Simulated assay, not measured.
Amino acid sequence: MPISTDGRCRIALLGAFAGVLLVQSAQASTLEAINHTHWAINRFSVDGRSGIDIIGPYQGGGGGCCYVAPSRWQPGMTVRVDWEAGVAYPDDFPGFADRPKYLEWVKKNDALTEKHSKVVPVPDYTGQKVCGLTVHFLPCDELQVSTSCYAYGSPEYPIKTPLHLPEPQSCLQ
């Protein structure tokens, strides 16, 4: 009997979890994100592992598996974040009936989609429990990451950046 796509995903996840269990010196958990911009984060990954969800402007999401943190933090530790940002709520959707208009609309919105990649430092988590990785998408394609077990917005969460940040006139510094 052929395995369904859903079944293949479960097998892949079980394999990933089994691999994580074999690495006893590591801690694994989910990838989450907080989007502090007016753009949609269409997709993101950390060190090649998918964050799963699309994250709308000024929202949180993610849920991908897995960020595997070494048992000990080392100075100079980094992660590579790849992401695609685009228009969150495109205007003037023409519908599907007029195919040329629809394709032009898609082309216009695709032109506003940008792919990014950045290597960012992992903050020192010595003596703390690691609960995955949360990526904060900030204006001007800046990022911050946290391994905290506290939820964003709680007093103990280390990143205090407000969710709604004004977009700067220019990202040049």
Rank of each mutant, 00 (worst) to 15 (best):
T5H: 15
T5R: 13
T5V: 13
D6S: 13
G7H: 01
C9Q: 14
I11Q: 04
A12G: 05
G15Y: 15
V20M: 15
L22M: 13
V23P: 03
S25K: 12
A28I: 03
A28D: 10
T30R: 07
E32P: 04
A33D: 00
N35P: 04
H38I: 12
R49K: 06
R49P: 00
S50T: 09
G51F: 01
I55Q: 00
I55T: 09
Y58R: 06
G60F: 03
G61L: 05
G63I: 07
C66Q: 10
W73D: 07
G76S: 03
T78M: 13
D82C: 14
A85I: 14
Y89I: 15
P94G: 01
D98P: 05
Y102R: 08
Y102T: 05
V106W: 10
K108C: 03
K108P: 04
N109L: 01
D110C: 05
A111T: 09
T113V: 12
S117C: 12
K118C: 04
V119P: 03
D124H: 11
Y125C: 00
T126F: 04
T126G: 14
Q128V: 08
Q128M: 12
C131D: 08
C131E: 03
T134H: 02
V135P: 02
H136T: 04
F137W: 00
F137A: 07
P139L: 11
D141F: 06
E142R: 14
Q144I: 12
Q144T: 10
Q144F: 01
V145A: 02
V145K: 02
S146H: 05
T147I: 01
S148Q: 02
S154M: 09
S154F: 07
P155V: 06
E156M: 12
Y157A: 11
I159D: 12
K160F: 13
P162K: 01
P162A: 08
L163D: 10
P166C: 08
S170W: 13
S170M: 00
C171F: 09
L172D: 15
